[in-house]
Computed example of a mutant assay.
Amino acid sequence: MYYVQRNEEGQLTRVENEPFSGMTGEVFSQTPEIIAWNSARDVVDESLQHKELLQRSDLEMVRVLDDLIFLLIQKGVITITDLPPMAQVKLMNRAQARQGLGGLEDLLNSDDQGIF
């Protein structure tokens, strides 16, 4: 049995396995309407999982981009001044913060002077 809430047009707005406040009816079997609702919910759940995965990886990607930009500068492919002024400031701030935490030393050879 499913407990449902419908809008003024009779469309499902909520389906639960347990009674809830505001429910407007009950459906006793797997009707095409309930099957469609559950299928749509599965699609939404899967999309939310993908979104969460992307959000969790965003911080990791920032570190990858930091390292990539640093490597391009170190190899002489680009210079810090090739970047927009605000990007320069952000990269310098991040580089200083990472150096302060000891995170950048592992990326430098002992004879390197720094990225800038």
Rank of each mutant, 00 (worst) to 15 (best):
Q11H: 15
Q11F: 13
Q11L: 04
R14G: 03
R14C: 07
E16H: 08
N17A: 10
N17V: 08
E18Y: 09
E18I: 04
E18A: 05
E18S: 02
E18M: 07
P19D: 14
F20I: 00
F20R: 03
S21Q: 14
S21A: 13
G22A: 04
G22T: 03
M23G: 02
M23L: 05
T24D: 08
E26K: 13
E26V: 15
V27L: 03
V27T: 00
V27C: 05
F28I: 09
S29G: 09
Q30F: 10
T31L: 01
P32E: 06
E33A: 03
E33P: 02
E33T: 05
I34W: 08
I34L: 04
I34K: 01
I35L: 10
I35D: 11
W37M: 02
W37R: 02
N38I: 01
S39P: 00
S39W: 11
S39M: 09
A40G: 06
A40H: 09
A40V: 10
R41A: 09
R41G: 04
D42L: 07
D42G: 09
D42H: 11
D42P: 03
D42F: 01
V43K: 14
V43M: 15
V44G: 03
D45T: 01
D45Q: 13
D45C: 06
E46W: 04
E46F: 06
E46R: 09
S47V: 08
S47G: 09
Q49R: 14
Q49M: 11
H50D: 10
H50S: 04
E52T: 09
L53F: 14
L53P: 00
L54D: 12
Q55I: 12
Q55C: 03
Q55R: 08
R56W: 06
R56K: 10
S57P: 02
S57E: 11
S57M: 15
L59K: 15
L59I: 15
L59A: 12
L59C: 07
E60C: 05
E60A: 11
M61I: 15
M61T: 15
M61L: 12
M61V: 13
V62C: 02
V62I: 15
V62H: 07
R63A: 08
V64F: 10
V64M: 06
V64I: 08
L65K: 05
D66P: 00
L68P: 02
L68H: 06
L68M: 13
I69C: 13
I69N: 07
F70T: 06
L72E: 10
L72A: 08
I73A: 01
I73K: 03
I73R: 01
Q74Y: 12
Q74F: 14
Q74H: 15
Q74P: 00
K75F: 14
K75Y: 14
K75G: 00
K75N: 08
V77S: 05
I78C: 01
I78R: 01
I78L: 01
I80F: 06
I80Q: 06
T81W: 06
D82Y: 02
D82A: 05
L83Q: 02
M86G: 03
A87M: 07
